[in-house]
Nucleic acid binder design. Structure first.
Length: 422
RNA sequence: GUGAGUAUAGUUCAACGGUUAGAGCACUGGACUGUGGCUCCAGGGGUUGGGGGUUCGAAUCCCCUUACUCACCCCA
């Protein structure tokens, strides 16, 4: 039998790292609630068609990264590579547009993309996703960006940069596309990737890293000069709103979202500490996606946070739940007694660790110390005879006898202060 | 899919082609028979990723393979 291991690009999350995950999840719930967002659960599997139609057939995600299989009913099923498509499907399917707009949701869960793993990039990765559907106002763009900013602040993250761009709308993006294609086709030989990009996704040529291409793009057209007046007004309003609450941002005309459904606002929140995958969160507007799925015309904006990337930026989080009591039974009769006692304590929501009756007292105490317990309750032959348990405070080694069934006295002992005990 | 690097104990790492592959941490036990942390001592642990080759001799050199890591592409 070969040694079992996880699949490539998939990993376990163990303590103590899981405490950081929990802290992020809890903090995000607090922040999102304060912005009026509600949690929602949407499926991990969907009809393949949902992603093909929303994300776009020519994107890498759909073209080569989807986990797609045929189920026993001969349906084509895909493990979601991102959350927005499912959210929009849910919005349309449940007629959520009938509720007051905008409807604001967040969700939390794994996404799947068949990619070559590297730092900050996995095949199964977790996202916190946020979507606001039913408003075209730049105010909602600003709210959503502010919400991400607030969360990162609450997690004590500094040195994050908000990068902002507008990629125009269906009406004006074509102008810019033409301008880019026109600009580069007059230039010399481009790298192999860019020769593909010029046909498929010309905007991507702007952040090519090949030296030859970098030189040639000097003086290339800038998107903000090509977007229509409506898009420009929207973009300017968003910037004013962010400025009004002192949120710093950096205009980055090279931000291009990799999914077809985006328009207007595109943004990324980046760090210098993640290697090549520097985006901790990214998102933008998708004003046409709901109507593309035969829903009513519904403007929307959202973003996703890369959970693993965020975890690696947030410092270690301590386990909050180290035991209050460690019960140390000596022998099997004592073990039975300790088991009963443990249940009484746990019913009062007191974190209690139960030791093995076969262990020596010394090994009990060592273990209690390693578990960072506060008190050890020793139950041996003497204690069983007298029905008095020996309760020891580990911080200063003070100990006293307490009636073996006297839960209240045990709890009272935890409240006594070291050094002033009677 | 492309390129580079790495693979030795549970873990982090040593070991010029030359005894029985070592050390820190972790784990278990003892010093201390029913009293933890600190200290000291001892112990368990390894097919040197796998396969083949060169050599008197390979963890070390060569080839193949697998896995991991980083980067490209792309993306959270």
């Amino acid at each position: 039998m070969t040694k079992l291991s996880t699949l490539k690009g998939v990993c376990d999350v163990l303590p103590p790292e899981i405490y950081t995950w929990n802290r992020i999840e809890e903090t995000s719930k607090e922040v999102f609630s304060s912005f009026g967002f509600n949690e929602i659960k949407i499926p991990v599997i969907e009809h393949s068609e949902l992603f093909i139609r929303s994300i776009g057939e020519t994107t890498d995600i759909v073209g080569k990264e989807m986990y797609t299989f045929t189920d026993k009913g001969d349906r084509s099923i895909t493990l979601r590579p991102e959350g927005t498509a499912g959210m929009v499907r849910c919005y349309v399917e449940n007629n959520l547009h009938l509720l007051p707009s905008p409807q604001k949701f967040y969700y939390y869960g794994p996404m799947f993309r068949y990619e070559r793993p590297q730092k900050g990039r996995l095949r199964q990765f977790y996202q916190i996703g946020v979507e606001a559907l039913g408003s075209a106002s730049p105010l909602v763009d600003a709210e959503v960006i502010t919400m991400a900013h607030t969360l990162f602040q609450r997690l004590d993250l500094t040195n994050l940069t908000i990068e902002l761009n507008s990629i125009g709308c269906n009406k004006c993006r074509g102008n810019y596309r033409d301008a880019i294609v026109g600009f580069f086709s007059k230039k010399g030989v481009l790298c192999n990737d860019c020769q593909v990009r010029i046909a498929k996704n010309p905007l991507r040529m702007l952040d090519c890293k090949v030296e030859r291409c970098v030189e040639q793009r000097a003086g290339a057209p800038v998107i903000l000069d090509y977007i229509c007046d409506d898009c420009k007004t929207h973009h300017e309003s968003l910037k004013e709103l962010l400025t009004a609450i002192n949120i710093d941002y950096k205009e980055n005309p090279y931000i291009v979202r990799g999914l077809d459904y985006y328009n207007r606002t595109a943004f990324e929140i980046t760090t210098e500490h993640l290697g090549a995958q520097k985006a901790v969160a990214a998102g933008g507007r998708y004003d046409n996606l709901v109507s593309d799925f035969n829903g009513p015309a519904t403007a929307a904006v959202g973003f996703a946070i890369g959970m693993e990337r965020l975890v690696s930026l947030v410092g270690e989080t301590k386990n909050q739940s180290s035991p209050v009591f460690y019960l140390a039974p000596l022998g099997s009769a004592a073990e039975n007694k300790a088991f009963v006692l443990s249940q009484s304590l746990r019913q009062k929501a007191i974190v209690t660790e139960l030791g093995d009756g076969g262990q020596t007292l010394k090994s009990h105490l060592k273990k209690a110390d390693k578990l960072n317990a506060s008190f050890v309750v020793i139950i041996g032959e003497n204690e069983l005879k007298t029905s008095r348990a020996l309760c020891k405070r580990l911080s200063d080694a003070f100990q006293k006898e307490i009636g073996i069934d006297d839960i209240d006295a045990l709890i009272a002992f935890t409240a006594e202060k070291p050094g002033v005990s009677a």
